[in-house]
Nucleic acid binder design. Structure first.
Lengths: 315, 315
DNA sequence: TCGATTTATTGAAACGTTTCATTACAATAG
DNA sequence: CTATTGTAATGAAACGTTTCAATAAATCGA
């Protein structure tokens, strides 16, 4: 910037003004400075800028699985909301590992981001509380807590909707597939499922816990599904995996032998081999709301209601 | 850091050494300093750090569509490779808009990232060349160019593979669906398709250009597919959209009336209503290779070969 | 023409680190 | 006991911006 100032024969402060408050600078001067900038190929150093400002114009978003379309949809919603405030969203992937999540939070904290939106992989939020005490602005996404602002979906209601639907179409032997159950969202979906069961006699619920919520995890379980007539998978990826396994074996017909229901209603749910019934979460709105909550000084908890989308997999 | 130094009764430089080169500091002192850090909740300011260092430990990755699983797979590959060098990948979405892409490149350039991996949305790479001249380290992803290092896939070969397969299973009236054709990858896939056509008589190829490569774009074209017996879609999302439209109408049976082939072989291709034949690109390896190329000082162009994966949609 | 007001420009200080030449201290050898 | 070597700790300078009080220049009214 010093070089630009020298070439344009103005003071350092003037160059800064051209960059940040051009309306304060006379047109003639502004043009002189712009020319110098172009001639020298000057690019403003963001580190110095932030150092002085004490704050960046970025927001960190940490999701447990970028490959899950639900989270990229959330990310898009957050991006759109952030852009209206001239902020950028930086997306990071914790891959369901608490240690990776922690190091991404630390990275963002060192970067003095405006805030961090995080969908925590583990149960223990202690390290987040500490970061909050240090002044980091945190909003939980897809998870509720009294100590942070949060945007979540009523997963108990979602689980209830799903299993109630299975019961209504006459299914008796139902499986819940998903995990790890230590993840609150998943535990809640299971709790909702159990609630629906207790309201009905003659219906059984078996829990099959998986280590992750991925297509692979679902696919690996295919042959175990013979014992059931209805399955509630904790997300669409698992449901799609189960569906694939059933198709490969060819022994189980969906929906006749097995009614299948997923969670999230990702775009691909409607495009599955058998279009998948699913519990829709308003993903983009979740991202949007999370950005809004960043601006709020008090703790606020926004909860959306899920919605059942019925398709061929539970005809 | 000054506060930490004061509390621990050491000099500023010693605190810095504890943080960066602890082996240089006597254990007693180190512990004193660590205690002070914990007591004060000190978090290193990354802006100042970078300002001094002149370089960050981040790499920017700009993709045209985060919702396309192909690109998130590339991102995962890049992340893994970057992590081994203790670098972080920041993912940004250009949404196929050149202006957004440019502003993300500018943001990363201002952040003095180690390098930018970009899968350009537009044809014109002039602004990237300028950034390169200014010293920005750029690797093109999924695009070839003599003026940048790049990692790409031989799309002409991919297009050829796809259409040759359609011809071999006896299809005569073939459509190419995708766009915009100004995107080189898509143009190359079409060129490969044309090459396969010219080698065979009695086979026709019609081009249906779309404005984007999305599920929606494919879905909107469903009814136009009646005139063909084979379709090569420029990516899997478009193919899945076409498939959805055919299912909704119910008039066109895949693969009997219409053989359908996609591109990318995303996870969901095998889970589609009719499992989708596709041309596989080695997505994670692409991300990996791009990170490797960042370290190379000379311009290098890595090109992978695509692979045909045959499934039920072209049985 | 002169003082008052408005508009433009200036440049030093500060932001929070890392670096590195210097100094202080301790251990060892002769 | 001194000289030598090695190990620890120090603190000023520098990184590249933004800010803001101070100054200079231009405009205005009477």
């Amino acid at each position: 910037m010093q070089d630009v100032a020298k070439l344009a024969k103005v003071a350092l402060g003037t160059v800064s003004n051209v960059l940040n408050q051009p309306e304060l600078v006379a047109e003639k001067t502004r043009i002189k400075v712009q020319d110098a900038i172009n001639q020298l190929g000057f690019v403003r150093n963001d580190a110095a800028r932030q150092l002085r400002a004490g704050q960046s114009r970025s927001i960190g978003l940490i999701v447990p699985d970028v490959r899950n379309p639900f989270f990229t949809d959330v990310a898009r919603g957050a991006e759109d909301a952030a852009n209206t405030q001239n902020l950028s969203v930086l997306l990071a992937n914790s891959d369901d590992e608490v240690s990776r999540e922690q190091s991404m939070v630390a990275l963002f904290e060192e970067q003095r981001v405006r805030g961090v939106l995080v969908s925590p992989a583990g149960e223990d939020l202690e390290y987040l509380k500490q970061a909050k005490r240090r002044g980091l602005n945190i909003v939980l996404v897809d998870r509720k807590s009294k100590e942070f602002s949060s945007v979540s979906v009523d997963d108990v209601a979602g689980g209830y909707l799903a299993v109630k639907h299975l019961i209504e179409i006459g299914k008796k032997k139902i499986a819940f597939v998903g995990g790890p159950l230590s993840v609150p969202q998943i535990a809640d979906r299971l709790a909702g499922a159990r609630k629906a069961i207790t309201e009905n006699e003659n219906v059984s619920l078996e829990v099959i816990e998986t280590s992750t919520l991925s297509v692979q995890a679902g696919r690996a379980l295919g042959n175990q599904m013979k014992n059931f007539d209805g399955v509630f998978a904790a997300n669409d990826l698992v449901a799609i995996g189960i569906m694939q396994a059933c198709m490969v074996d060819g022994e189980i017909n969906i929906p006749n032998d097995l009614a299948l229901i997923g969670y999230d209603d990702i775009d691909f749910a409607s495009a599955a081999i058998v279009p998948l019934t699913s519990v829709r979460q308003p993903s983009a709105e979740i991202g949007n709301a999370a950005i809004e909550l960043l601006n709020s000084s008090e703790i606020r908890n926004v909860e959306f209601q899920p919605e059942l989308v019925i398709r061929a997999s539970t005809n």
